[in-house]
């Protein structure tokens, strides 16, 4: 060990022991809430914002239709077919998941069901938010990754409980 290794190590230990979180000496939320309130009341009314967005979208749609004429044929049909096949695959996976769930031991089953409950609650909440703000990219991403998590959970259980053939020599 070099002479200066010891203090360095001790310093690193001291730094590593510092807590990840420090609670402020008093609650800062009331200040933040007041500032948020001020900001919200300074904003234009939501109806005006919505009207502006709708008007903007309409203008955009008119401009697009003038520029491009008729939309490319068949695109929406393809998308609809893709979405339908994904939904069908997911539904089938969910059915298999439900038949396999009893194969899990009780504590695992409880954990899985609890996790699925949380995922589905988040999904419902996000779906509700998307109905209110269908153009929100953040909500779309959150919703997509949440449904993907649900799919992955079904998949993990189905794979983990996959029956196999045990061969014996007798």
């Amino acid at each position: 060990m070099k002479l200066d290794d010891k203090p360095r190590a001790s310093l690193e230990d001291a730094l590593a022991r510092l807590p990840q979180e420090i609670v402020p000496t008093h609650d800062l939320w009331p200040r933040i809430e007041a500032a948020l309130h001020d900001e919200m009341s300074a904003r234009p009314p939501a109806s005006r914002v919505v009207f502006g967005l709708v008007a903007g979208c309409l203008l955009g749609a008119v401009a697009m239709s003038v520029l491009w004429g008729v939309r490319a044929p068949g695109t929406s049909g393809l998308l609809a077919r893709d979405a339908a096949s994904v939904m069908a695959a997911r539904s089938q996976l969910a059915t298999t998941y439900r038949t396999r769930l009893p194969l899990l031991d009780a504590p695992t089953r409880v954990r899985v069901e609890r996790a699925l409950g949380v995922i589905q609650a988040a999904e419902q909440d996000l779906a509700q938010s998307r109905r209110a703000a269908p153009d929100s990219a953040v909500l779309s991403r959150l919703y997509a990754s949440t449904t993907r998590q649900e799919f992955d959970l079904y998949d993990a259980i189905v794979r983990a409980t996959e029956p196999f053939v045990r061969r014996t020599s007798t």
């Binding site: 899990l104 954990r111 993990a156 409980t161 053939v165 061969r167 014996t168 020599s169």
Partner: peptide, 16 residues
């Protein structure tokens, strides 16, 4: 040859 269906041990990895 006897074929029996059995269940694989469940290993879920990290739960969500």
């Amino acid at each position: 040859m006897d074929g029996r269906v059995a269940t694989a041990p469940v290993s879920l990895g990290a739960p969500p």
